[in-house]
């Protein structure tokens, strides 16, 4: 019998792994408002994660930390080596290629934010602070949210997240989750063209999404990770059209509210309170639809629109 670690989960926050191999590395971080503890049998993935988030590392795990665990195992039949990514005691992914571990660790964390970070109203959006105002780009997957955020950060915007607009229901302020920006292969050249040295960054594999690279926000700008507390001042529902002339048009606040509801991760949990919250958000924001094309021209258009 192949040595198969026995996993006993005693509670959501206390995943105890017995019998795992010696050398499992552990580290804790606070990525904005999201505390994370990682434990990994794979040293490469561990180091890569620590490199991305070393400035956010903690001495001790924070309370309510999301517990991400990478286990090196073997397939029961083929005995082929694989890596399982667990989060809070639940197996989320099993991958065969070591280059897939890091993206799936990130994916697991995002998944658990959706499930277990109920304090914030969550919109699927990239989020920035520009001139003291929050700017969010809600969009479906593959709409260029991360690429646009990277381009904006290069131009001086301060980074909050490329995946979640986390809105505090009490203050209506945006909370930061400044994860490394996850850039898909189709956007490598666009960012290269704006001066980002993409070729110096390792390539990872993110399932059907293909090759990705992670960019630390401070790789784009030294002031990227010091956003000021801000409310949402501008909402831009973005969609990418290759070769399109960048265009922005105003939309009504009622339209914006409905679109925000569609892009919300936890609308079901907030229900009428969420509708009230989003109404407050759109009342104090300018709302637009953004068609993005060339990255540089799109970012310039956004900056002109928000009055930066």
């Amino acid at each position: 019998m192949i040595g198969w670690p026995l996993q006993i989960v005693t509670s959501r926050q206390e995943a105890v792994v017995r019998g795992s191999r010696a050398g499992c590395d552990t580290a804790s971080f606070r990525i904005g408002v999201v505390p994370v503890t990682i434990r990994s049998d794979d040293e490469g993935a561990f180091r890569a994660f620590c490199d991305l988030y070393h400035e956010m590392r903690l001495e001790e795990p924070a309370p309510e930390s999301i517990d991400v665990r990478v286990r090196r195992t073997r397939n029961g039949k083929s005995l082929r080596r694989r890596y399982e990514v667990w989060a809070d005691g639940a197996r989320r992914f099993a991958v065969w290629d070591r280059r897939s571990i890091l993206p799936h660790m990130e994916w697991s964390i995002n998944w658990h934010i959706m499930l277990y970070l109920p304090r914030y109203y969550q919109v699927h959006a990239s989020a920035l602070e520009v001139g003291g105002a929050g700017v969010i780009f809600p969009a479906a997957p593959q709409s260029g949210k991360s690429t646009l955020a990277a381009g904006m950060v290069q131009r001086g915007a301060r980074y909050l997240s490329d995946e979640f607009a986390l809105i505090d229901p009490e203050t209506l302020e945006l909370a930061a989750y400044p994860k490394a920006l996850c850039i898909k292969e189709g956007s490598f050249s666009a960012l290269e063209a704006t001066g980002v040295k993409m070729a110096t960054l390792p390539v990872y594999l993110k399932g059907k999404k293909g090759a990705v690279r992670f960019i630390r926000p401070d790789f784009l700008s030294t002031s990227a990770t010091t956003p000021r507390p801000c409310r949402v001042g501008h909402i831009m529902f973005c969609r990418y059209r290759p070769g399109a002339t960048p265009e922005v048009r105003s939309i009504s606040r009622a339209d914006a509210l409905l679109r925000l509801a569609r892009q919300s991760f936890n609308f079901v949990k907030f229900r009428s309170a969420g509708v009230n919250l989003m109404a407050d958000v759109v009342r104090s924001a300018e709302c637009y639809e953004l068609t993005s094309g060339d990255l540089g021209r799109t970012c310039d258009l956004v900056l002109r629109t928000v009055g930066a």
């Binding site: 606040r253 009622a254 509210l257 509708v275 759109v282």
Partner: peptide
Amino acid sequence: VLHELDGEAV
């Protein structure tokens, strides 16, 4: 739940 927004409603 009703919100009137610039003459429209949600």
